[in-house]
Amino acid sequence: MSSLTKADMAERLYDELGLNKREAKEMVDSFFEEIRASLAHNEQVKLSGFGNFDLRDKRERPGRNPKTGEEVPISARRVVTFRPGQKLKERVEIHAGNQPDSV
């Protein structure tokens, strides 16, 4: 099955809301852009029903180059994690029964 893309989402805004093609494309772009900007400023994003994008600060830790076996420290970093909301979890779980080999 093909993936859902920004183009598909814009198409639906055009079909269902009557935004023109340019408005629809710009709305989808700014939707993800605003979420990205928020996370880049260390601001959690909470979209009720869908889920939360959380931020976690990781300390530096020892790592290893898997090819050479050489020890290389993994630098301190900030990462995004997604916690699905209750509604999304339920919707996805129900689907599980009728599609044994999913994505």
Partner: peptide, 12 residues
């Protein structure tokens, strides 16, 4: 739209 896609096993 995103919820519907995932609930039918479609990736985003």
């Amino acid at each position: 739209h995103m919820t519907d896609a995932l609930s039918t096993g479609e990736r985003i």
